[in-house]
Simulated assay, not measured.
Amino acid sequence: TDRANLIISVEIDEHALYERKLTLPDITEKLEAKLKIPIYTEGYTLIIHPKEPSLGSLVQLSRNLKKVVLKGIEEIPRVVIQKEGPEYVLYTEGTALKKVLDVEGVDPTRTISNHPGEMHEVFGVEAARNSIINEIMSTLREQGLNVNIKHIMLASDMMTCDGEVKQIGRHGLSGEKASILARAAFEVTVSHLIDAGMRGEVDELCGVTENVIVGQPIHLGTGDVHLVVKPQV
């Protein structure tokens, strides 16, 4: 950055261009499209002037220049290569599954994302369900916890049963419960109770959580029996 003349000079490595299969016109075209200013070249040097001849514009231009992606997928800043058995697997920082599948050489049948929402968008709700199960089980195993997969499958089924991926929280499954006390038992207790009071809602106390809160038997098993027959002796 030449602050005296208010210009930015970029020296291009010819060998790096060849390795990345880029040309100088490719770079200038990309920069002009992103920065919305003309780019001048002198050999393998790019000369860039800010729109306004001021130091502030020059500094901002320098920041914007560093963010321009010349080649590759913008949402993925870094890739780590690991050898697993006889094959090499790529792990990315960031995710853009739909764009990755368009890359030549990528096997779509063995490419996944740990983002359930993205898996749902690209592959459908069943893939999102499997993604939730795999990610939760993987996290539990890393912590040395042994949890029966059926519990995780039940949770993932509840999260995806409507064809969409819902969170387990007040904006998802817990917030959709019919019981006021069950909703209040999860998060933001006071807000749920105030909202229910303003609407005049009535809790029928049909579930487990709300009956435990009020201290009465749960309507399950022996708690669901109202008639007792005493056999004659």
Rank of each mutant, 00 (worst) to 15 (best):
R78M: 09
P231Q: 03
E93H: 13
S156A: 13
G94K: 10
D2G: 04
S9L: 11
I180E: 00
I76F: 08
S138Q: 05
E164C: 13
D107C: 10
I149W: 07
L65D: 06
G124M: 07
V212E: 07
V68W: 09
E75C: 08
E204P: 03
G200L: 04
A178R: 11
I132L: 05
N64S: 15
D203G: 00
H49K: 15
G223D: 02
E187F: 09
H226K: 11
S174Q: 02
V79L: 15
S174T: 01
D2V: 02
L22C: 12
L145F: 12
T28L: 02
I48F: 06
S9C: 10
T95A: 13
T95G: 05
E176R: 12
L154F: 11
P108L: 10
L58F: 06
K150C: 10
R199C: 12
H226A: 12
H120D: 02
T109H: 14
S191P: 11
H192D: 01
L35V: 07
M153E: 04
T92Q: 08
V214L: 14
R141N: 11
K51E: 13
L227P: 05
L70I: 13
H120G: 01
E176Y: 09
V125P: 04
S179K: 00
V190A: 15
V202H: 06
G144C: 08
Q82M: 14
E118K: 07
E118Q: 12
V228T: 14
I81D: 06
L140M: 14
N211D: 04
I218V: 15
E87P: 05
L70H: 14
L193N: 03
S113R: 00
T92L: 05
R199A: 10
S9F: 10
S9V: 09
N211W: 00
Q167R: 13
G117V: 04
P231T: 00
L17W: 07
E176M: 08
T189F: 12
V80S: 07
I180G: 00
L90M: 06
V225K: 04
E29H: 09
G175T: 01
N5I: 13
L145G: 09
S156Y: 00
F186K: 01
D157R: 05
V228Y: 15
A184Y: 00
H49S: 08
M198A: 12
D102S: 15
I168F: 09
G223Q: 03
H219W: 03
C161L: 10
G56Y: 06
T160Q: 02
I37H: 04
E176Q: 09
K66H: 09
T139A: 15
L31N: 00
R63W: 03
A128T: 02
R141M: 10
E187W: 06
H192E: 05
S131F: 00
P116E: 02
K99P: 01
Q82K: 14
E187Q: 13
L227G: 11
T160P: 06
P217F: 06
S138Y: 10
K34I: 06
S191K: 13
T222Q: 11
Q143M: 13
S191Y: 11
T160I: 03
L65K: 03
L97I: 05
K99L: 07
H226D: 14
L24Y: 03
Q216K: 07
V59K: 15
G207Q: 03
I133H: 02
G43Q: 04
K34L: 02
L31Y: 01
P116A: 11
T222H: 15
N130Q: 10
A16S: 14
G94Q: 10
L173D: 02
L46S: 02
S62P: 05
V214N: 11
M137S: 12
N64F: 08
V100I: 11
T209R: 02
